[in-house]
Computed example of a mutant assay.
Amino acid sequence: MKTKILLVEDEHDLSLIVCDTLHQQGYEAIAAFDGIDGLTKYKTEGADLIVADVMMPRLDGFTMAKEIRRISSDVPIIFLTAKSSIDDVEQGFDVGANDYLRKPFELRELLVRIRSLLKSRLSNNTGNSVYQIGNYCYDSIRQLLTCDGKETTISNIEARILDKLVVNIDRTVDASELMIAVWGRDEISNRNSLHGYIHKLRRAFRHDPKIAIINQRGFGYRLTAK
């Protein structure tokens, strides 16, 4: 059975080009031309991955993604957008995006992102997605921290950072690697935002004093639970 990709894009010429490329790569491509059409087709036909524009008529990509996340917490979503501010990227991840590609883009780059997300989803479905961190249990798919029966849902951005830290527990992760995982680029202007999210994660782990996220100044961050 072919991998099914739902493309939600209101630019018809671009949609045709991307769908043709996906077909050539062996995927089944379903086209929708606005957020409402995309949401309807996801509900009726499903998809293994969604590629969606942000600015669309009738229903924008962010709102569509929120509705899709009510149905599925794990279907990968890639946003396509001409917007480039950090606030826009963070908003996209906060509503449940897995990746963010700025227009104009190379088709080859889109294919690389698609393959990476599909591989990651397969790994999550067959491998470990629940981690014990001190007294906390972390479910990376549900983005949920549990301690003494109390559950805390962390944001998509916090989860992307924690995913990197937990698989490298007791090892320092380069700040550049964390920023690329979240924003797709390493820029000085992102450093304060990264530190802000690290601070939120520290608060999320506040009920276990053995857990710490240590700032290795000038390099990165290290998660410990000793």
Rank of each mutant, 00 (worst) to 15 (best):
Asp13Pro: 05
Thr81Asp: 07
Asp170Trp: 14
Leu201Gly: 04
Ile133Asn: 03
Phe62Val: 04
Thr152Arg: 14
Ile188Glu: 15
Ile161His: 03
Lys150Gly: 04
Tyr221Lys: 06
Gly61Val: 07
Pro76Gln: 04
Ala32Arg: 00
Lys4Pro: 10
Glu45Trp: 09
Ile211Gln: 07
His12Gly: 03
Leu122Lys: 12
Leu14Lys: 01
Leu117Gly: 04
Asp10Ile: 07
Ile133Tyr: 02
Asp208Trp: 04
Val75Thr: 12
Arg222Tyr: 06
Ile161Phe: 08
Leu144Ile: 02
Lys41Gly: 12
Glu187Gly: 10
Pro76Tyr: 01
Ile86Thr: 14
Ile213Gln: 03
Thr21Trp: 10
Asn168Leu: 11
Tyr138Cys: 04
Leu165Ser: 09
Asp10Thr: 11
Ser85Asn: 09
Arg202Gln: 07
Val51Asp: 01
Lys226Thr: 15
Ile36Gly: 01
Phe219Ala: 08
Ile214Thr: 14
Cys19Gln: 11
Thr172Ala: 10
Leu49Met: 07
Ile36Lys: 11
Glu158Leu: 03
Lys41Gln: 15
Leu201Arg: 01
Gly96Val: 00
Leu223Arg: 08
Asn124Lys: 10
Leu14Ser: 09
Gln132His: 11
Ala212Gly: 09
Tyr136Lys: 11
Ile157Ser: 00
Gly38Thr: 05
Tyr42Glu: 02
Val130Trp: 05
Ile78His: 00
His12Asp: 09
Ser72Ile: 02
Ile214Gly: 10
Asn125Phe: 03
Thr146Glu: 15
Leu7Pro: 05
Ile180Ser: 02
Tyr197Met: 06
Asp186Asn: 13
Thr3Trp: 02
Ser176Trp: 05
Glu106Gln: 14
Glu177Phe: 02
Lys4Phe: 12
Lys119Trp: 08
Gly218Leu: 05
Lys200Arg: 15
Ile5Phe: 06
Ile86Leu: 13
